[in-house]
Simulated assay, not measured.
Amino acid sequence: MTYMIHGATGAQGAPVAAALTAANKPVTALTRNAGTVVDGARVLAIDYTSPVDLTDAYRGAEGVFVHLPVAPEEDRLTFARNVVAAIREARPARVVFSTSGAIVSTDGDSGRDDSAESAVSVLATGLADSGVSHAVIEPRFYLENLLLPNVIAGVLEEGVLRYSLPSDFRASWASHLDIADAATALFERTDVTGVVSVGQYPAVSGEDLAEAFSTRLGRTVIYEATDPHAFFAPLAPMMGEQAAAAIADMYVAVSAQPDLSITAERSGQKLLGLTPRTASQWLAGIDL
């Protein structure tokens, strides 16, 4: 029996695959390219387009880690339905799904478009109805976003951390490494089900993040809020214009809220005993 890790060469899946491999767990890396090499793992070329292939991959698996790729929402809906159909048919022992920042819990209004018809909600609801043991990791924002070229260049060259959240807006930031910690714990802790929110609690502001950069670099870094559409426009060639516009719209909606903090009741701190990395701790492991 093995652990199937979607996107095992990407930002979210790679840390999960590495953590499981380090724990001497058998890992199968699910990637789109047959020639990919993942240290310590078997590689299976598969994507989200075929429910039959997904079913074959999931059958007999000890665990499945899944998250939806950045793509047009119509495609993501298809991927979500295919994954749900495969899980219902194959019935792996455990599924851990990361929402990649989308909100599926019902406590509060996130300002995000996570309706019943969103791909993330379709997958989360499908898991809940499948009868398969599962948990949903619900982060807010990723610290790795601060390494985007249009962010880190301003930090290093100008001493200005620019991001598309208002000044003093507090959010529960987390690293991809924190998601990996939660995923590996949830594969073991089958008693924990439903949504597990991962991120800093209490939440932190852009000014707090700038202070962490100041400490790391040994010089002053200030925070500057930017317009979301202006911020994400340069990323359109990388992620696609439709996806970039949709993410910008989400940030506009989020910015209208008082904050974007996780709640203590569903936090990884309470449910799993995990303490996410602070921005300073995360930066200590980053080569700037």
Rank of each mutant, 00 (worst) to 15 (best):
V66G: 02
I286V: 15
E117L: 08
M239P: 10
A22H: 03
I46K: 08
L288V: 12
A18N: 12
A119K: 04
V120L: 06
R112S: 12
D75L: 15
T193K: 04
A171D: 11
A41E: 06
Q257L: 02
H6N: 12
R112N: 12
V52R: 09
E188G: 11
G108V: 00
S255H: 07
R266E: 07
I5D: 05
T9E: 05
T226V: 15
D113Y: 11
A14C: 05
H67G: 12
P69A: 00
L283W: 07
G285P: 07
R266T: 13
S280M: 08
L288F: 14
A185Q: 14
R42V: 14
G126T: 04
A135F: 09
D109W: 10
A256G: 10
L274P: 07
S105G: 08
A85E: 14
Q242K: 10
D227R: 00
Q257P: 03
S267E: 01
A128K: 14
A246L: 12
L44W: 10
A264W: 15
G7R: 00
Y48E: 07
G63L: 04
A19F: 02
P92I: 00
L272W: 03
A253E: 13
V254Q: 13
A86M: 08
F187R: 01
R76V: 13
E224Q: 15
L156H: 12
A248Q: 01
H134F: 11
V204H: 11
L274H: 05
T36D: 15
L161D: 02
A11N: 14
G159H: 02
V198W: 08
L147T: 13
D107S: 10
L143R: 11
T106F: 09
A61V: 08
G268S: 08
S50C: 01
A124G: 02
A171G: 13
V43N: 04
A153D: 14
G194Y: 05
V198K: 03
R32T: 12
T78M: 10
